[in-house]
Design a protein around this nucleic acid. Structure first.
Length: 400
DNA sequence: AGGTATTCACATGAAACTATTCTCTGAGTTAGG
DNA sequence: TAACTCAGAGAATAGTTTCATGTGAATACCTGT
């Protein structure tokens, strides 16, 4: 028997640690949102008028990542949907995540996505934006109905394209004859509304809700309840959940991270053929999650970004920190060597700023007085990550 | 010594350009009646 | 004559380039002592 098929044989014989793995996936919707009863109740109260065909106040929800915003809203929507269905109320809700690349990260695409959710396809390009708007209007206004528009992570959207389109959205109601829409915005950024046009701000956030981060004990309980469903009994060794939640609590109470970590730890345990998840697995998982995140982020960037990053990686062993000009010189040499287009320094400056935003490099603008002003760039990564990242980039760029 | 003024090496902004992808339109072509 | 093809115009988007303007502090340059 070949090597690989014995592997599969063994794989089948080995039983899995998981009973219900979906419970640990980010897409999972639990029936109860733990420790968010109060918020769920408030959201429900604010949105309840929609069942009587009265337009509820627009709602704005703030809270850091992994504090259950999306979950709570989805939960409320779900029951609104059910109730409206049984009572035949013309209510519908559309949920869009504005962060998704190539789905809803521009004005055009957002509207197109909304239209798609309502069951009509719109081409990805080729139509003027106002045309798309009018399709959207007529689709909404077909009948008397109340539509709930949930825009998740709007801060990402406005950061990219400004707040003009939010203004358009808030004005839709006055254009509609039959239907009414209600906007629910969700933002990770707590100060998001501050640099918004005041008109938009006031109409968008008629009601505001803030989701506080979970504390360590709450995270523990949440993890326990998920773990109970996801794994067979006694799979998780004592202390693992505790450590996992402590880690997440340190990172501003992000449960999503904690759940992710637990899942990866379990996968690692399973792969190494063990029946139980230990603290060691958790540590490995922490390392892996971190590494994967960075590598994934890096490989998703355009080629030129990768080239700049690669340049930095190449130089990094000899020097701890470097300036824009130095990087640019080496970069252009490298590009010429491998017949890449050489971009302007202006562009490289932007690329460096964006790599900094992504957290792959650390850049700080300093003034060297008489000798100018520049970015002081250093690599904020673990050596093992650097080596892996370099390999990946070499492959991706087909360099060397 | 103490106070200004310069100056460097980029940063940051705005606008415009390029290439790609897609739709729509209308002229020209084709095939069948 | 209806159906089909195909080029060209127009849009949206990503990634750049071009041109213009901004900027923090180490030095150079004064000034009066």
């Amino acid at each position: 028997m070949s090597k690989i098929s014995t592997f599969f044989e063994n794989f089948l014989k080995k039983d899995s640690l998981f009973t219900e793995k979906e419970v640990l996936l980010p897409s999972y919707l639990p029936d109860k949102v733990l420790y968010r009863e109060e918020q769920v109740q408030q959201v429900a109260e604010i949105l309840a008028p929609s069942l009587r065909m009265e337009k509820p106040s627009n709602l704005f929800i703030y809270g850091k990542t992994g504090t259950g915003k999306t979950l709570s809203v989805k939960h409320v929507i779900e029951s609104l949907r059910n109730i409206s269905k049984t009572n035949e109320i013309p209510f519908s809700a559309i949920y869009v995540n504005c962060k998704l690349k190539r789905v809803a990260d521009t004005e055009y695409r957002l509207i197109a996505q909304l239209i798609k959710e309502m069951g009509k396809k719109i081409p990805a390009t080729g139509l003027p934006t106002d045309e798309v708007y009018s399709i959207f209007y007529s689709l909404l206004d077909q009948k008397k109905q109340l539509v709930l528009l949930v825009l998740d992570e709007i801060d990402q959207l406005t950061k990219k394209i400004g707040d003009e389109m939010l203004y358009n959205l808030t004005r839709i109601n006055s254009e509609l004859k039959q239907a009414q829409i209600c906007l629910v915005g969700i933002s990770n950024n707590l100060v998001f509304a501050e640099d918004l046009d005041p008109r938009v701000k006031s109409s968008l956030s008629e009601e505001e809700l803030i989701f506080p981060p979970y504390n360590a004990i709450q995270i523990q309980e949440i993890l326990k309840s998920r773990a109970k469903r996801a794994f067979k009994e006694d799979t998780v060794l004592p202390g693992v959940i505790e450590k996992c939640s402590a880690y997440a609590a340190r990172e501003h109470g992000d449960v999503r991270r904690a759940i992710d970590l637990l899942r990866v730890a379990a996968e690692l345990a399973e792969r190494s053929g063990q029946q139980q998840i230990s603290i060691n697995h958790l540590d490995d998982a922490e390392q892996k999650v971190e590494t994967d995140k960075i590598i994934h982020a890096a490989l998703n960037q355009p080629k030129q970004f990768q080239m700049v990053l690669y340049t930095i990686l190449l130089v990094s062993p000899q020097k701890k920190q470097f300036f824009t000009g130095e990087i640019y010189e080496i970069y252009s040499k490298l590009c010429k060597q491998h017949q890449f287009n050489v971009l302007t320094q202006r562009r490289i400056s932007d690329i460096l700023a964006e790599l900094d935003m992504l957290g792959i490099i650390a850049a700080k603008i300093i003034s060297k007085g008489r000798y100018g002003r520049t970015r002081e760039i250093s690599l904020a990564l673990d050596p093992t990550i650097i080596i892996k990242l370099k390999e990946h980039l070499e492959k991706s760029l087909r360099v060397e």
